[in-house]
C-alpha cells in the first residue's frame, strides 16, 4: 500500500502508480485501485447516505470500472487527484440521477475524505453480477471466468478453447459493455 497520509496527500504516490499502470505494470495498477477503493466507498456513502451498503458497493464498482476504462484520459503531466475526483463525481452524479435521488454530491472531492477503514462488505447480491448475465454468451463466459471465478487470462483461454488474444479482446469489450449497461440499463 502506498503511503497515503503525507501532507500533500496521496497525489505523488498515486500518480506514480498510475504512470506505471499506464505503461503496462499490472501490479502497480492493482495497488492503485486497491488504495482508491476505500475512499470511493466513503465518498459514495456520503453521497448516498440513505441507501444500504450493498448499493454503495455497487457504486464503488461502477466508479472503478469508469476509472479503468477512462484511464487513458489522464495526462501524465497533469495532477492525478483532480482527474480522479472528476471521474468519481461524474459517476456519482450519474447514479443519483438514475435513482431519482435528490441527494447532494459532496462538494469536497473524495480525496479530502479519509478512507473508510471498514473492510469491503460482503455483497450477496451485486448489480455487476446481474449485468454480467446480460452480456452476450462469449463475453459472459470470459468475464465470469476472470472477474467472478478469478481465473487468469491464460486459464480462461485454455478452458474456453480460445486464444489468449481473443480472451483479452472479449474481456475488454465485455468490461466496456458492462459500463454501458450500468449507465443505460438501470433506470428501473
Amino acid at each position: 500500500m502506498p503511503p497515503a497520509n503525507k501532507p500533500d496527500g496521496p497525489e505523488k504516490a498515486w500518480a506514480d502508480l498510475m504512470r506505471a499502470g499506464l505503461a503496462g505494470d499490472a501490479a502497480a495498477y492493482r495497488l492503485l485501485l486497491e488504495a482508491i477503493a476505500p475512499r470511493l466507498r466513503k465518498f459514495a456513502g456520503n453521497g448516498l447516505s440513505r441507501i444500504g451498503n450493498a448499493d454503495i458497493e455497487d457504486v464503488v464498482q461502477e466508479i472503478l470500472l469508469a476509472i479503468h476504462l477512462k484511464r487513458q484520459t489522464w495526462m501524465q503531466d497533469q495532477p492525478f487527484l483532480p482527474w480522479l475526483n472528476a471521474i468519481a463525481r461524474h459517476k456519482l452524479i450519474d447514479v443519483m440521477r438514475r435513482k431519482g435521488r435528490r441527494g447532494e454530491v459532496p462538494i469536497e472531492g473524495f480525496i479530502e475524505i479519509l478512507p473508510d477503514e471498514a473492510p469491503a462488505p460482503e455483497t450477496s447480491h451485486s448489480e455487476l453480477n446481474k449485468l454480467v448475465s446480460r452480456l452476450d454468451s462469449r463475453q459472459r463466459s470470459v468475464v465470469s471466468s476472470i472477474s467472478l471465478d478469478g481465473h487468469s487470462i491464460k486459464d480462461t483461454a485454455t478452458k474456453l478453447g480460445m486464444s489468449e488474444g481473443a480472451v483479452r479482446v472479449a474481456f475488454h469489450r465485455g468490461l466496456k459493455k458492462l459500463a454501458e449497461l450500468y449507465r443505460t440499463g438501470r433506470s428501473a
Partner: peptide, 22 residues
C-alpha cells in the same frame, strides 16, 4: 462480485496505453 475480485480482474485488462493525444 466482491470489489477486490473486480480490481484483480481490471488489473488483468491493463496493457500499456497509448496516449490519447496521439
Amino acid at each position: 462480485m466482491k470489489t477486490d475480485d473486480l480490481i484483480a480482474s481490471l488489473a488483468a485488462d491493463a496493457p500499456a496505453q497509448r496516449p490519447l493525444r496521439r
